[in-house]
Simulated assay, not measured.
Amino acid sequence: MHEHDDYPVPGRMERRAVDPRESVRAGRLWWDGAADAYQADHGDFLGDVDFVWCPEGLTEADIGLLGDLDALRERRVLEVGGGAGQCGRWLRARGVREVVSFDLSFRQLQHARRIDEDSGTRLPTVQADVQRLPFSDAAFDVVFSSFGAFPFVPSADDALAESARVLRPGGLLVFSVTHPVRWSFPDDPTEHGFTVHQSYFDRRAYVEEDDHGNAIYVEHHRTVGDWVRGIAGAGLVLRDLTEPEWPEGHDRVWGGWGPVRGRMIPGTAIFSAVKP
Rank of each mutant, 00 (worst) to 15 (best):
T178R: 08
D158L: 14
V24M: 15
R92W: 01
A164C: 11
M13E: 13
D251C: 09
R261G: 05
C87Q: 08
G249C: 09
L78W: 01
T121K: 00
R89Y: 03
Y38P: 04
A164H: 08
R76G: 08
R222H: 15
G67Q: 05
E245L: 10
L91Y: 07
T242A: 08
V260D: 03
L78F: 05
I115D: 02
H179A: 03
W254M: 15
D116L: 07
P244G: 01
Q39M: 09
R222I: 11
I216H: 10
E248P: 07
H2N: 14
G81Q: 05
V224T: 07
D187C: 09
L65V: 01
V52M: 07
S272W: 02
K275Y: 14
A234N: 02
R122E: 09
G233T: 02
R12H: 15
L109F: 05
F51R: 00
P124T: 04
I270Q: 02
G82Q: 00
D141F: 12
A37D: 10
P20F: 15
D5E: 15
M1I: 13
W257S: 13
A161T: 07
V181M: 05
D141W: 11
T195F: 13
P244Q: 03
V80I: 12
W53F: 05
H2P: 09
R222F: 15
G47W: 04
A273P: 04
D103Q: 06
V52E: 06
V52Y: 09
G83K: 01
D62E: 12
F194D: 01
G249M: 07
W31V: 03
K275M: 11
T268I: 05
S101W: 02
F51H: 03
T178L: 15
W227C: 09
R261V: 00
R203I: 10
L46I: 01
R182S: 10
D116N: 07
G225W: 12
P189C: 08
H4L: 15
G67E: 06
G256D: 14
L109M: 04
T195G: 06
R97G: 04
G67Y: 09
S136R: 08
P259C: 09
T268V: 07
W246T: 00
F194C: 01
A232E: 13
F147L: 12
V218W: 11
R168A: 14
Y200V: 03
L160I: 07
Q108E: 08
L172F: 10
R73L: 09
E74R: 13
F147M: 10
A138T: 03
D48A: 07
V49H: 00
D62G: 09
G43K: 03
P20L: 14
E162I: 04
A139N: 01
E79I: 02
D116V: 02
E191V: 12
V143Y: 04
I231A: 06
V260F: 04
D6I: 07
